[in-house]
Amino acid sequence: MKAVITVIGRDTVGILAKVSTECASKGANIIDVTQSVMSGMFTMIMLVELDGLNSDFSELVSSLEALGEKIGMKVHVMHEDIFNSMHRI
């Protein structure tokens, strides 16, 4: 299973590092990352492979959401199928 992690908020130092570290600690393997900063707004989208997850998915979601709150960013973790089904025929 793959999930999409999005991180949106004001740009600060070390966002990518903190999110990546959290993913690594849970065993989520990052397979693609894209990020942009426009007018100080930071948007990062990460595709992660979850087959090696060392906790359950719900725990990964909670820990990343908690991290988002701590660094003042809005974090979503969603199964990739929701995007595939909404936007691909």
């Binding site: 999409v4 999005t6 949106i8 693609d32 894209t34 948007t43 989208i45 595709l47 809005k74 979503h76 969603m78 990739e80 929701i82 995007f83 595939n84 909404m86 936007h87």
Partner: peptide
């Protein structure tokens, strides 16, 4: 990878 615009559109639909 899935189109960035599509991902952000879905999140916007849910959040806002």
């Amino acid at each position: 990878m899935i189109n960035t615009k599509d991902i952000l559109e879905t999140i916007d639909m849910i959040d806002n």
